[in-house]
Amino acid sequence: MEYEISLATTMAISVLFALSLNLITGFCGQISLGHAAFLGVGAYTAGMLAKAGVPFLLTLPLAMLVAGALGVIVGFASLRVRADFLAITTMGVGFLFVGIVRQQDALGGEMGISAIPDSGMSKLVFMLFAVAMAAAAALLSAYVRRCWMGRVFSAIAEDEDTVRVMGIDVPRFKLTAFALGTALAGLAGALYAQHLKFIAPDSFGFIESITVLSMVVVGGIGSVIGVTVSAAVLSVLPSWFQVIGTYKLLVYGGLLFLMMRFSPGGMAALVKRIFHPDRWGAK
């Protein structure tokens, strides 16, 4: 059973992480190519605190706080630059994070941090806890989507200038989206550190940022159910792909490309098309 429990934990953490990006990119339309940096901030914060003897449950809110605070700072960048420029800026933030952590001896440098103290939970309980966190994030997403804030988010995603003209305080909403999304990424990072008990800078690099963006996009950008399903499936796909062995990354990249090429709305759009064939012609 332990293998399945471990896989389920990985799944839950990925779902949480993907949903956190979905808040920023899916709901509010702010593309981020450096989201893994916040996973890393959460993981390092929680890992260092746990090593300093702070109990596991207390490391979670602190990891969220630190990641969210840095998220707001990066959010300020989104006020200054837009669209493609923002994509590249966030990518830069990701590289900067890894580049800085690599050189910090206090953070274990290139060697990373290992032997992170146990949470005291059994593997099964920890898995259930991670699943509960992912479920909570999904509920939060569904709620945000429905409330006033979510409507403003999607209006900003559609047409920022019009929203601005309407007298809505766009910066405040953008920063809120970044704060929420990055704090959740921090939570995912804290769980990640606890799950693997070992973290190193390379685990939070550009590839990881791309992977999580793929999860969101393949699921259907903005769709909570779509993103949840795709994150769950894509996160364990590499383990399944062991069968296909050396073709794993080829399939992964190919899948990403084909999905965008033939169904840019992701799985959510694909499912819709299958169940509502009359909409085939619609854009």
Partner: peptide, 20 residues
């Protein structure tokens, strides 16, 4: 044989699978 991509994230499930 399991591929771990030299990454801890891939190695942990691979090891669990080998054992379990």
């Amino acid at each position: 044989i399991y591929d771990d991509q030299a990454s801890p994230k891939e190695a942990a499930p691979a090891a669990t699978k080998l054992i379990e």
